[in-house]
Design a protein around this nucleic acid. Sequence first.
DNA 1: GCCGAGTGTCTGGGATCCCAGACAATATCT
DNA 2: AGATATTGTCTGGGATCCCAGACACTCGGC
Lengths: 252, 252
Amino acid sequence: MAQVPAARQVLDILRFLADQAGPVPAAALARELGLPRSTTYHLLGELTATGFVVHLPDERRYGLGVSAYELGSGFTRQAPLQRLARRPLSELTDRTGHTSHLAVLHGRDVVYVIEERARGRAPLVTDVGVRLPAPLTASGRAMLAVLPPAAVRALFPTADGFVLRNERGPDSPAALRRLLAETRRRGHALEEGEVTAGFASVGTPVLDHSGHPIAAVALTFPEHEVPDEDGRRSLAAQVARTAGTISRLIGG
Amino acid sequence: MAQVPAARQVLDILRFLADQAGPVPAAALARELGLPRSTTYHLLGELTATGFVVHLPDERRYGLGVSAYELGSGFTRQAPLQRLARRPLSELTDRTGHTSHLAVLHGRDVVYVIEERARGRAPLVTDVGVRLPAPLTASGRAMLAVLPPAAVRALFPTADGFVLRNERGPDSPAALRRLLAETRRRGHALEEGEVTAGFASVGTPVLDHSGHPIAAVALTFPEHEVPDEDGRRSLAAQVARTAGTISRLIGG
DNA sequence: GCCGAGTGTCTGGGATCCCAGACAATATCT
DNA sequence: AGATATTGTCTGGGATCCCAGACACTCGGC
């Protein structure tokens, strides 16, 4: 790696601040990141001048500023995940002969952002732009299974938040917990006929550098074509490899 | 300013990328920012390693990455605007004897994030957390008046998006355009009895370094207490000064 | 009011890094 | 298929910057 230490330091500051619940004192920044005090103040000066950081004199702390928000907006606008994931999903579909998709969590739902339909296969409900309740889908189950339990509880505090489909799916927080525990035990998410009768899906999450799920990859197939556990496990392994590829591409 | 050129350069790259509609080639970055080519690749290497930027080999371009998104989330969580604006609003209320508030645009509505109630004044509808249709409020009018016309059209394409209150307020895109033109001519936003009968408000936008409205400051007063144009203009000038103070604090 | 801890600013020289330019690989154009 | 343009990698030395530490200011505790 080329030596660009000041660049590295300023990015460390930004990432550290991004992980904090609120603004922090300069001394805490210097201590946590192992930076010399004067260097910390120089870098904070630059970050403040460019709007990435705001100095809160009343609190004697530093927090993220409007330029940080604009980076988030820019990320959303540029949709790098979709751009990076399209080829790996296309290859997964070619290899397996089944339709693949990429979805992101959006509150209690998943939203499909890529669908790579296999040659000669019928269109599925999981078209781009479609939203479905996360607990019902392989993609949603894959992501929920790797969220902290408190985050899952926050999303689904009571039985009210559950939407059944074809009269199936978890209908209470306890049922969801059991389903997610089973998903973790199995090593991949599974959905059988709950979204579309006669079809099943396997899914795995795409994790960022902190282990947080940013998306999920899933493969959908007619149930009768892959009726046995081994066949599904094999498909799940390919899905997991694709998810890992996308994680690496997204980097960090 | 202390010399931290590499830090400055890396932040320039991030801000440039945040302003682009899509990913860009490294050569365009170097050219637009006046950076040496090798320096550009070194900094991009660092940005890619930390997840702020993703390299899209198929497109031979660079775009924003997940760490950029996390900065946006961190900004929202830390709410620096509210932290910075509280004291200026408190001082505005003390100086004028009227209730002040800070609101942000949220789609077609405004959301109130600070209310500083004046001593001995009745509570108002503009409590923290309340949402109201932007075209009806001084804060909303202040922000809409400085948005590009295309952005206003996108928010209010037809007569359907208008909500009247007390049977008053603009009820069509044309009426809204006339109202915003009048707001720009007057130099501040005005609302008279459309939100609460018997009360009026004056408001001005808080702009970021690009001239984009990130919030608005408004002052609400009983109509009969400030019936004349000069009195309202004087209050509006104080509101504008407070908005300018907050702009400077937010920086960039 | 005084003291100690923490915040923020400033300076200069030893340490190191930034950039010009060479080179290799890849993509596009003819 | 060959030529050209662009992308991406690498090197080393002149230029400059990073950090230790001193100093001033502010805030909180007693």
